[in-house]
Simulated assay, not measured.
Amino acid sequence: MKKKDKRSEEKKNGDIIDMLDSALDEDISEISEMSELEESSNEAVKPKNKSAFHFIVGLIFIILAAIGLISTVGFVSDKVKNIIDNTDQKNEFAKFIYPVVICDPPSFDATTKLKNETIISAAVWDIILYEDKSKYELDFDYLIVPEVDIEQHAAKLFGSGLTINHMTIASADISFYYDGEISSYRIPENPKFFTYSPYIESISKVGESYTLTVGYVSPTPAWLTLTSDEAPSPEKYVDYVVQKRGTSYTLVAIKQSEKQAENSHESGL
């Protein structure tokens, strides 16, 4: 009985071991197959995801590059155009010399040779054009302008060291009255008379000295001459020599210009 029991028990143990071995072999194989399927699936998905991501990033960079190129081209185009025609600089010089052009003074090679009438008239026109006139007392249609302001604006145009003999400047078109008792001028608040407006034809520079070939346009409002896209037809040309001193300019000479107006050629024929 003991031997039979022992054999029976050994047989049962053997069967159990075989079942476990079979189960383990089957699980390992299935797990291996499942792992391989998952890996192959992940490998198939990853390249697609990476390709889509790279495409989107590349597209963004292309769009940004296109925007940057358009902006750069526009910026460079504006700068090149501005350098070629010097529009800003021409307008700056035209504004500076405009009060002198209105006076149409004769040529001079030194400010010490300027006529008294030219100095005063140019200074008054500089005040009329650019000064804040609200600060002056108004007497009917005339501004009361202290002579010291005339001297300051004269220095702005022609530099310091000028000798000014204050006096009334009278003409058929417009007059500036000097009142010695109050050391002031009476000047029209809104004069309608303009002789010439400046048109800067060309600019040449040597060091800090600029020679401006100035066309005299008659009679044209300042804003039209300085902002019009079309070149006007000047009656004559004059060369202005302007010296840069710091951040400002000073007119040092006026000379006859070699450039002739078209109407002068026609009249000469």
Rank of each mutant, 00 (worst) to 15 (best):
I127Y: 02
F176D: 01
E30A: 14
P188Q: 03
L157H: 06
G180M: 10
E181G: 11
G159I: 01
T250N: 08
D18T: 14
L269R: 15
E137W: 09
D126V: 06
S8P: 07
I60W: 05
I127N: 01
F75L: 06
V148C: 02
P146Y: 04
S35F: 05
S107Q: 13
D104S: 13
T213N: 05
L224C: 12
E235H: 13
L138R: 09
F194W: 07
I200G: 04
G207I: 06
K259L: 09
E117A: 10
F108E: 03
I174A: 08
E26Y: 13
S32V: 09
A23L: 06
Y98E: 01
D78P: 04
V148R: 11
L24G: 12
W223K: 15
S40L: 07
N82A: 12
E181L: 11
K113L: 09
V76L: 11
F193C: 12
E258I: 06
T111K: 02
V217F: 05
Y136S: 06
L269T: 14
T220L: 11
K3E: 15
S202K: 08
T227H: 15
D78R: 02
K90S: 09
Q152P: 01
D132T: 09
G14N: 09
K4S: 13
L20C: 14
N116H: 12
K50S: 13
D88V: 10
S121Q: 13
K50Q: 13
D179E: 15
E36K: 07
R245A: 11
G207H: 07
I17P: 01
V73H: 13
K6R: 07
I70L: 08
H153Q: 05
T168M: 00
I164E: 00
W223C: 14
D179C: 14
E26P: 06
A110G: 03
S204G: 02
E117V: 10
L114N: 06
K2C: 03
I127D: 02
T250G: 05
I97W: 02
Y98N: 00
S228C: 01
T168F: 05
V148D: 10
K90A: 10
I182F: 13
V45W: 15
E147N: 01
E189M: 09
A122G: 02
G246C: 12
L157M: 12
T195G: 12
F140G: 08
D27A: 15
F176V: 07
L226S: 03
T225M: 12
K12Y: 01
E147I: 05
V45F: 15
I62D: 00
S228M: 07
D229S: 00
A155S: 08
I31G: 05
V206C: 04
F75N: 07
A110L: 05
T250R: 01
K81P: 02
D15H: 00
I62T: 04
D173V: 00
S77F: 05
I60P: 01
A110Q: 04
I70H: 09
G58E: 07
V238N: 03
K2F: 07
P146K: 04
S267C: 02
R7Q: 11
D78G: 03
F93K: 08
A155L: 09
T163W: 05
I187K: 05
S121P: 10
